[in-house]
Simulated scan of single mutants.
Amino acid sequence: MIKGRTARAVASTALALGAAITLAPSAAADSGSSASAVPASANSRAQACWGQPERGSGGHYGNSGWCDSGRYRQAIRCETLGGYRYVHYGPWVWAPAKSTAWCNLGDRVVGTWLE
Rank of each mutant, 00 (worst) to 15 (best):
I2H: 08
A27P: 00
W92D: 05
A19K: 15
V110Y: 01
K98W: 12
G70E: 07
A14H: 05
L17N: 02
W66N: 07
T13A: 15
A40G: 12
G70Q: 13
S26G: 05
G111W: 10
S26Q: 10
N63G: 07
P53I: 04
P91E: 14
I2N: 13
T100R: 00
V93I: 03
Q52W: 01
T100E: 11
S41V: 15
A97W: 10
S69D: 13
W50G: 08
T22R: 01
V10R: 11
A40V: 11
S33I: 09
S64W: 01
Y86E: 07
G56W: 10
T6R: 12
T6E: 09
S26T: 03
L81M: 10
R55T: 10
A97T: 02
A101K: 11
G90Y: 14
W94N: 09
W94I: 08
A27R: 13
A75P: 00
A24I: 12
G70R: 06
G59D: 00
G59T: 01
A75Y: 01
W92I: 11
N43Y: 12
L15C: 06
A28V: 10
A14W: 02
E115A: 03
S36T: 12
A27N: 12
V10Y: 05
G18C: 11
L105T: 02
G70V: 03
A46H: 08
K3D: 04
V109Y: 06
P25C: 05
L81D: 01
T100S: 11
A29K: 03
A19W: 12
G32Y: 05
S36R: 15
C103Y: 01
A48G: 04
R5P: 00
L81R: 14
Y61P: 02
P96G: 07
R71P: 07
